[in-house]
Deep mutational scan, measured.
Amino acid sequence: TTYYDVLGVKPNATQEELKKAYRKLALKYHPDKNPNEGEKFKQISQAYEVLSDAKKRELYDKGGE
């Protein structure tokens, strides 16, 4: 599973699309609303952290993490 899959976006997604997808999923899986989905929330946050940063995203796209 790639970070793009976690957020449900395509690899060519814009920053705005990433932000929108992250917010939607973060609300859905937030531990306050969904106590059993803490791990999913962490995955979503990690994916967004990497993909929202241009340098980290470039490194990730080249095969790094």
Rank of each mutant, 00 (worst) to 15 (best):
K28T: 08
Y4N: 00
D61P: 02
T2R: 06
R23N: 15
K56A: 14
K62D: 05
F41S: 02
Q43G: 06
T1Y: 14
N36P: 07
Y4H: 02
P35H: 08
K28I: 12
K33M: 13
Q46C: 10
K40H: 12
T1Q: 11
E37R: 05
A26R: 09
G64P: 13
P11H: 10
L18C: 04
Q15Y: 13
E17F: 03
N12A: 07
D5M: 08
A47Q: 00
R57L: 03
Q43A: 13
R57S: 03
I44G: 01
V9S: 02
L25E: 04
G38Y: 10
G38F: 14
K10Q: 08
E49Y: 12
D61H: 03
Q43D: 08
T14C: 04
Q15N: 13
E17I: 05
Y60G: 02
A21W: 01
E16K: 12
E49L: 09
P35S: 07
Q46I: 11
Y60P: 01
K55M: 11
R57K: 08
F41G: 02
H30Q: 08
G63M: 15
K10C: 13
V9T: 04
E17N: 04
Q15W: 11
N36D: 13
N34P: 04
N12S: 13
E37N: 14
D61Q: 03
G63F: 15
V9H: 00
K10Y: 08
G64Y: 15
P35D: 07
S45E: 13
G8W: 03
A47K: 00
I44D: 00
E17V: 04
V6E: 04
A13H: 02
E65A: 11
P35K: 13
T2S: 15
L51P: 00
A47S: 02
K19L: 13
D32T: 11
S45P: 00
D32V: 09
K55T: 11
E17W: 04
E49M: 09
E16M: 10
K33E: 10
P31S: 08
G8D: 05
L59V: 12
N36R: 09
K20A: 14
E17P: 00
K42G: 09
D5S: 08
Y48P: 00
L7M: 08
Y48K: 01
R57I: 03
E49P: 00
Y29W: 06
L27F: 11
T2H: 06
A26H: 08
K28Y: 11
A54M: 10
V50D: 02
K33C: 12
R23K: 15
E39F: 08
T2E: 06
R23F: 15
G63P: 06
Q43M: 08
L18Q: 00
K24D: 13
P11K: 14
E17Y: 02
G38W: 14
S52H: 06
K28L: 12
K28P: 02
K62P: 03
A54L: 09
T1C: 14
Q46S: 06
A21C: 05
D32R: 10
G8K: 06
K42M: 07
Q46R: 09
Y48R: 01
F41Q: 02
Y4S: 02
